[in-house]
Structures are given as C-alpha cells and as structure tokens.
C-alpha cells in the first residue's frame, strides 16, 4: 500500500487502498443521536420514507393523506399508515494538535485516524464537522459542516494543513467545540488526553448536547514505556514547567501503574456517558488499528 506513487494518492494521510476500504465502512454508534434531517439512520419516530413501520388509529388533526383507505373500507374506521423515518447523524472530529501531540508522530497518527473516520462518515451521508485544537488565542480551527463524498477533498485539505503546537487543554477545546456546535451525533476526540483539567465536566457537557463521545487516546512508545534513568529535569512541552526526577529508573513501576490507571479512568469516563474509549500506540500499524481493532471494538462497521 505504501508503495503507491504519492502523485496518484488523494491524500497524504491515507493510501487509496485504505480509502477504498474505508468508503465501505460506517461509523458504529452506541446510541442513536440523530437529527431530523434526512439521512441513513433509522429514527425511532415514524417518518417519510417508503419503508412501512406500523399502523395507528386516526386522531383529529392527523394528515388524512396518511389514512390507509383499504383498511377504512374493510373496518369503517380510519387508521393511519406509518413509515420509518431516516435521519442524518452529525459526526464531529476533534483533533488535539497541541504541543504534546508533536511527540513521536502522535499528531500524524491522530490526523490519519481522523481522516479515516471522516471518510467513513462522509461515505455514510453523515454531516461531518472537524475541529483542531491548537492555541488558546486563536481558538479552534474548524471545518464547517459538510456532507457527501465530494466533501472528502475539503476534509483532507483541512487535516493536512494542521500544524502541531499550542497550549490549549483538551477540556477547553471540547468546551469551545460545544459552544459553537449544533446537532446530535458522535464526537470523536483524538488526543493523548494528557491534561490535568476536568474531563468529567467536558464529558457531561458533550453527553447533554446529544453527542456520543468516542475517545481515542494516542500515546507514543516512550510514553507507554519510558526508557529513562538517573536524575532528570522533565520539561512540559505545553506549559514549559519542569519537574526534577531522581533515580527515574526506580519510578517506572509506579509510572506504569499510574498510566494504566489513567487509561482505565478515561475508559470509564466515556462509557459512563454512553460512549467508547480506545487507547492506541502511535507506532501501531495503521491498518491494524483501522481494520482490526476498531472493527473488533465496533467503532467501524
């Protein structure tokens, strides 16, 4: 796949083969946060589609065009014929491109996954919105809602133009997104989640806005298993704060305990709000993530 000529590829983020496979996949939501606009997702409500759903007795005020006259002729009572409603789902891609994502190709991997989810969403006639978290000052960089396969080019251009940097915490990025976003559906948050902020509040706000939160944590290999020893001064890439660590090698077991506990905490946070959570390594093969893990986890169908 990687041997394809770059000139013939639609995007630098994904190969054409991957794009082709992704075009045949759809996002698998846990709940059905959909919108009234016409779409591919069946609504609980009856609607205007051609697919029969049920009958119910006529009530005054109902549109008499929906009365099933054959039933009326037999029973001499009016019944309405109900059809399924197919609604459109909003898919929001929120990519954390703050300074911490600059390490170990975490951002490129986040952009690749965002592109993959975007392709799946546009192929499924969803409304897609993308946003990138960078600086506090400049706020979110957004891709306006778009739909249809023709919008893929815009999505790829938007993602490929993303540069790492900035110090916006993830929870502030989510707040900023929700502040402007309208519509129910799914929000995919691609980040390393290395923030000290309150993600509970951000998760609650997301859930209350009718967005199913899909958290995807991307960590570099040395974040998963740091190879450090001796006395070190650790510098935070976003805040430039430092922390002195002595005999770092002795702390690795504690570090692993904390990292795993934090991952479990994030998973719990998403699942308690009807969402999903998955942690992937930045160096894990993309095909394996896309077509194996995400499929098995039910993120893509």
């Amino acid at each position: 796949m990687e041997t394809e000529s770059p000139h013939r590829r639609l995007t630098t983020l994904l190969t054409n083969t991957q794009l082709a496979r992704l075009a045949r996949t759809r996002l698998g939501g846990m709940r059905r946060f959909t919108n009234r606009s016409q779409g591919e997702h069946r609504s609980h409500r009856s609607g205007q589609s051609t697919e029969f759903c049920d009958y119910r007795e006529y009530s005054p005020g109902d549109d008499i065009r929906h009365v099933d006259w054959n039933i009326f002729a037999r029973l001499h009572r009016p019944y309405l014929k109900l059809f399924l409603e197919e609604e459109r789902m909003h898919v929001v891609l929120l990519v954390d491109a703050s300074a911490s994502m600059r390490f170990e190709k975490k951002l490129p991997r986040a952009l690749q996954l965002a592109a993959a989810f975007g392709v799946a969403a546009l192929s499924g006639a969803e409304v897609l919105t993308a946003a990138v978290i960078n600086d506090r000052a400049s706020g979110l960089r957004r891709l306006p809602p778009c739909k249809g396969r023709t919008s893929m080019r815009r999505l790829f251009d938007f993602l490929e133009a993303t540069e790492p940097g900035g110090d916006t915490p993830l929870e502030e990025g989510i707040d900023a997104l929700l502040h402007e976003h309208r519509g129910r559906g799914v929000v995919l948050v691609l980040s390393d989640y290395l923030t000290t902020g309150d993600l509970h509040r951000a998760g609650n706000a997301t859930f209350s806005r009718g967005l199913e939160i899909f958290g995807l944590q991307i960590l570099g290999p040395t974040e998963i298993d740091p190879d450090v020893a001796g006395d070190l001064r650790l510098i935070d890439s976003e805040t430039a704060e430092h922390l002195d660590v002595s005999a770092a090698a002795q702390l690795m077991s504690v570090y692993q305990e904390h990292r795993k506990a934090y991952t479990r905490h994030l998973g719990r946070l998403c699942r308690q709000r009807g969402g999903r959570f998955l942690a992937v390594a930045a160096d894990e093969p993309l095909d394996q993530v896309l077509f194996d893990r995400l499929r098995r986890e039910g993120w893509l169908r």
């Binding site: 911490s100 390490f103 290395l194 650790l234 935070d236 890439s237 976003e238 904390h258």
Partner: peptide
C-alpha cells in the same frame, strides 16, 4: 533536560 509531552503522569 528531557522534554516530555506532559508532566501530568
């Protein structure tokens, strides 16, 4: 000095 993504952990 070692720059890390975050000091949180």
């Amino acid at each position: 000095r070692l720059e890390v993504p975050s000091l949180m952990l």
